[in-house]
Design a protein around this nucleic acid. Structure first.
Lengths: 342, 342
DNA sequence: CTGAAAGCGCTAACAT
DNA sequence: ATGTTAGCGCTTTCAG
């Protein structure tokens, strides 16, 4: 078996209490003893068990991260940042892909609790009020990224979705577009709703009437969005521009349109949201609203860990400022487009 | 505190052993008792602690996954597949971003051991012989994905790098190119070496002499690759085509070239390796060698978990067949290119 | 400055 | 069919 605290204690000729103390830098142990114990531990290649220590009430140094899909750039970039910060602070992170499915989310949450994780970061869309209630009842530190659930006093950091959507839409408006579609992904979460509000607000400011018919549904899968595009092509063709709820949808739309023979950005202007690495790579490179993903991941991790350590006065809600990044997917309105007869 | 097995036992009027048995479906317990215990447990919202159970020698249902960077599509797609399969089989996965740094890798490995993970999947480039030796000595089940370390009898699944590189290069050759560069990322791992060999073999078969000068160094960061491209531009311009060691490098090269005023694919043909989602999105869409990422992740997870459960005759080495996916980044050699004077 | 002992929540003989 | 009990490896009073 692996070497335990007993092995070290015996070989060092001290009690296990002493060994425990030197490893936790607690109590008063003479420098000599410390040196000696450390020496012996090293010889024996002793590695204190986190699970045994956790059982005595100490933390597991683990946080759970729930996101829809780690293969999605926005979340993988977020996960990277969270894991980095966690690692710096001595935490390990377990990822949970929920696909925005309430059942999967519930399942993961239960496992995480059974594993006694120290805290949980929710970056998933499915989270219901009930889930939040349970989490609070069980007193497990929970934080929200890029996701808001009204009515709960938890740490969260998110981007100003309203403002971002407003800027995206206004950018299109200023380019002369008026037939601007809004294409969503899942649409069951507040984040997308808020972006829709921002879109509407921009239209309103510029006195362009909002039309229900200009709302289209994409999907978090590029393939599915392409499929949707195909099916809604005639309606889509009535637009000259689109604000896509996120980069992935924007790209699905672009790919779909290209497949249908559109030449971009000439035949359609598109702006996305997130500014993941995909935005740069895409053809045409994507004009989009940047969220400071890395910073957000770092902040939420800090907040969560502060809460875990009880070093926190009150819960914070940090709202980051979005930024319009102009690339090549959105250009000036051209009145001579064949389908822009309006 | 959270409710424990004692709470359930007391309220149900049975012993903790009974409760334990019903939850583990062990021993002979009357149907009535089972029902009753389950009922009480539900009322109390009892969730058996994995950490306590782990301390008694049972597994933690956790596997560790070491990869260079989860924000990199190849690894995030791989991670997704591994997590999916793990989840199906009741395992949770903790991700560790090593950046191919031996220190980080060692650090993570120690933590994982201290957390008593049931097994580890290594998808990182840094892994040294020594690390593998330690892992074997400590008898912790270890598996390798997309990475080979000769001399160790461990489960692994990888893609035929030689064959893939051969096909990529031959594709370029058949398009009429002879000045074909090879651009690498880290180059310190066997995988890249093997791809280089495949590249050389294809050249040889087609009687094109291999030149050391045609090897260029890219980087796992797109930005860094672009930088490298800038610096090596004059040498790069002597090529008419490139085989990039992976999609990320290919994309860095493409972006860098475009920034330098190249028009692609006209001015340079490029083929990548991996077929991540980036390949489709990129402009021009990337001709590349597809690895069955999803299948590989699933297979390695199965193998590892089989080993954990002791249900395995011997260690497997599964080599997947790569497949050339033709898109738009590589085209016929045009003798009239201004810098193709050879 | 160091050690003995209780206990964390659960499992697995071994009894009954 | 069910209960008693001895650990698992560690932390933490409390004594000495």
């Amino acid at each position: 078996m692996r070497t335990t605290i007993y092995d070290v204690a015996k070989k060092a000729g001290v009690s296990i209490a002493t060994v425990s103390k030197v490893f936790n830098k607690k109590g008063n142990i003479s420098t000599e003893t410390i040196q000696h114990v450390l020496q012996v531990a090293k010889e024996l290649n002793y590695k204190p068990s986190f699970v045994a220590s956790a059982l005595t009430g100490k933390s597991t140094n683990t946080i759970g991260l729930l996101i829809p899909d780690i293969a999605n750039s926005f979340f993988s970039e977020m996960a990277r940042s969270i894991e980095d910060r966690g690692h710096e602070l001595g935490y390990t992170v377990v990822i949970c892909n929920t696909d925005n499915l309430p059942e999967k989310e519930a399942q993961y949450l239960e496992w995480l609790q059974r594993k006694s994780v120290d805290g949980i970061i929710l970056g998933t869309g499915a989270t219901s009020i009930n889930v939040m209630k349970t989490l609070q009842k069980d007193r497990i530190p929970t934080a929200l990224v890029s996701r808001e659930i009204p009515g709960f006093n938890v740490n969260m950091v998110l981007c100003d979705d309203f403002q971002g959507a407003f800027e995206a839409t206004e950018h299109l408006l200023k380019l002369g577009h008026t037939n601007i579609g809004f294409i969503t992904a899942a649409f069951d979460n507040l984040c997308e709703q808020t972006r829709l509000e921002g879109y509407k607000a921009a239209l309103k400011k510029h006195k362009v009437p909002f039309k229900e018919a200009n709302i289209f549904s994409g999907n978090m899968s590029i393939e599915q969005t392409k499929q949707n595009v195909k099916e809604q092509l005639s309606e889509i063709s009535k637009m000259t521009a689109f604000f896509a709820v996120n980069d992935l949808v924007a790209i699905g739309l672009i790919q779909g349109l290209k497949e249908q023979g559109f030449s971009l950005p000439n035949d359609m202007s598109i702006v996305g949201f997130d500014n993941t690495m995909l935005a740069v790579i895409n053809d045409p490179s994507l004009t989009t609203i940047a969220q400071p993903i890395q910073k957000m991941g770092q902040l939420i991790t800090d907040l969560l860990i502060d809460e875990i350590n009880g070093v926190q006065a009150k819960k914070e809600k940090i709202v980051m400022k979005p930024e319009l990044i102009i690339r090549k997917s959105a250009i000036k309105y051209k009145p001579d487009l064949k389908w822009a007869e309006n």
